[in-house]
């Protein structure tokens, strides 16, 4: 446990110093900061536009950071040979992988936390929203954090056997498809005209790929007034789902990484 902790804190220290990540993070914060000015887009749905644009920026920037941070994590260690000094110590490969992953999650938490903090502060000062909406926003930010933690697990998994560039597109692709799953499934399920085979496919894909769209719950946040029953259970459910899927990916990653020539 000490080794895992040590590796993960070192990973955080490195991640928050990576220039490319800091640049993306700065852009994210900047974009979030100019959002309150964007409300001219729609004078009457001012709050809607503000919230939706802020969450838009938060999500896309978090996803980008998660992918860029994670795809290089293992390959960099190999390329710079730090992995040799670490693996020649009494550190198992799975400990290394888990430590790296936890480090990525911690770093993502810090970065998303920063952006979400800026978002909440700006939102509060420019729009004077009721506390409930602030909490709604915070909840969505936390769900996005779980989402990118899952995405980081996807990227770590791929990084045990593909190059960073391929991984970048693979992970982005998986996220892309994964965040379409619910809307697609929904639209197939609603559309009785679609062929059963396509609906079956939709069902199959939905049950295989990590479902990132579970974490997009901003509809009622943007358009409040709907009371959703047992929302807390849903949030716990998504967190549990995320944990299970992360477990799958990390174990699969360990099994591959364990036989990997580094």
């Amino acid at each position: 446990m000490g080794a895992i902790l040590s590796i993960s804190t070192t990973t955080v220290g490195e991640a928050i110093r990576r220039r490319v990540l800091l640049v993306i993070l700065m852009i994210g914060v900047l974009l979030i900061s100019i959002v309150p000015a964007l409300s001219v887009l729609s004078a009457r749905s001012d709050l809607t536009t503000t919230i939706s644009s802020m969450l838009f920026v938060l999500r896309i920037v978090s996803v980008l950071i998660a992918i860029v941070l994670t795809v290089y994590m293992i390959p960099n260690e190999i390329e710079r040979r730090t992995i040799y000094t670490i693996l020649s110590k009494p550190v198992q490969r799975w400990q290394f992988l888990v430590g790296k992953y936890l480090g990525a999650v911690l770093a993502l938490g810090l970065m998303i936390g920063l952006m979400a903090g800026v978002m909440l502060i700006l939102f509060y000062f420019f729009k004077h929203p009721p506390m409930e909406r602030m909490l709604d926003l915070l909840r969505q930010a936390i769900l996005y954090f779980i989402e990118v933690s899952l995405l980081a697990a996807v990227a770590i998994f791929f990084s045990t056997f593909v190059t960073p560039l391929v991984n970048f597109f693979l992970s982005a692709g998986v996220w892309g498809v994964g965040s379409l799953l619910n809307p697609l499934y929904d639209s197939f399920a609603n559309n009785q005209g679609s062929a059963p085979i396509i609906r079956g496919m939709a069902k199959f894909v939905t049950s295989i790929l990590p479902n990132f769209s579970n974490y997009d719950v901003k509809n009622p946040i943007i358009n409040p007034g709907v009371t959703i029953q047992n929302e807390t259970t849903y949030y716990l459910g998504t967190a549990g789902y995320g944990l299970l899927y992360i477990t799958i990916l990390i174990i699969a990653g360990i099994l591959i990484f364990d036989r990997r020539e580094v």
Partner: peptide, 16 residues
């Protein structure tokens, strides 16, 4: 979790 609970809940409450 996904098929038994989340999907249905999402479709009911969060689907655009």
């Amino acid at each position: 979790v996904s098929q038994g609970y989340l999907l249905g809940f999402w479709r009911k409450n969060y689907s655009p």
